[in-house]
Design a protein around this nucleic acid. Structure first.
Lengths: 145, 145
DNA sequence: TATTGTTATACTCTATAACTATA
DNA sequence: TATAGTTATAGAGTATAACAATA
């Protein structure tokens, strides 16, 4: 059998992807608490989805592949800690427009920097060409449904 | 451009890895319940760590990067559902040796088949050479500490 | 009536702390 | 005293169902 069908050593792609992702999360969390108290990886993931002009909870939930209830809980938490604000829209008072605060912006920059450090490490380790290929390939897989 | 950030701003490696992993998990879960009731992705991950001769909870916890308490909970659950058995070692009655049942073996085979289907899909999509390169590269990153 | 968001509740995953049994 | 595992408890992440306010 080819290596594709032989997963008996548990060296399958799920493990490989999981391990890589674990390192990224670890890098984000390593100095997170001292800079942005209360933020966890799930919050960074949400914060970076918010565009400068703000977004509705329903739309954020859709992009995040979450229910709006689940997403709403995160938004409440982030707002309480000062990473986001929200206002009802005058033209449709059902809608809450969620925006990042300056601190929220800094938090996104922080997580992007952490991810960039990992990318740098991997790029150095593999050489820029091989790393670019990895990235390109993952992107292609993500783009196809 | 929608009201929410488009991919270009959040197209870092964390998102790419997360999306790929999400698909693997989805493939495992798609027909899991009908074949192996009660099993979730975390259980498949644990089951495949158990060698044929069995393993101690403490050792499994170390390999799984979990606490022995957390791991013990999963083992209790798996045993109640008939996917594992366990016996105290005669030579050290503190130790519980956990083994997979035949059904547990089948569950591991099922999850490996699901992962192999994803690998096959990706291999077809990228061509076998590019997919092999992706796999090889991820493996290399996982191997280096 | 349909949609936006909230409240209430529960399940899943995993952790920390304190404990029991055995060595 | 040290180690293997258990019990008790809690926090984090996310879900479903029922609801309220607004359109």
């Amino acid at each position: 059998m080819t290596s594709v069908n032989d997963a008996s050593q548990t060296d399958h792609v799920a493990r490989l992807l999981g391990e890589a992702l674990r390192r990224v999360r670890q890098e984000i969390l390593s100095t997170s608490e001292e800079h942005f108290p209360g933020l966890r990886v799930s919050h960074y993931r949400l914060l970076e989805l918010i565009p400068p002009e703000g977004a509705r909870i329903t739309d954020l939930a859709e992009v995040a592949l979450m229910t709006k209830q689940g997403l709403g809980q995160h938004v409440d938490y982030l707002q309480k800690l000062g990473y986001t604000t929200s206002d009802r829209l005058p033209e449709d008072r059902r809608v809450r427009l969620v925006r990042r605060t300056t601190t929220g912006d800094a938090a996104v920059a922080y997580s992007h920097a952490a991810i960039a450090r990992i990318e740098q490490t991997w790029s150095t380790r593999l050489g820029p060409t091989r790393y670019a290929t990895l990235r390109q390939t993952l992107q292609e897989l993500g783009a196809t449904p």
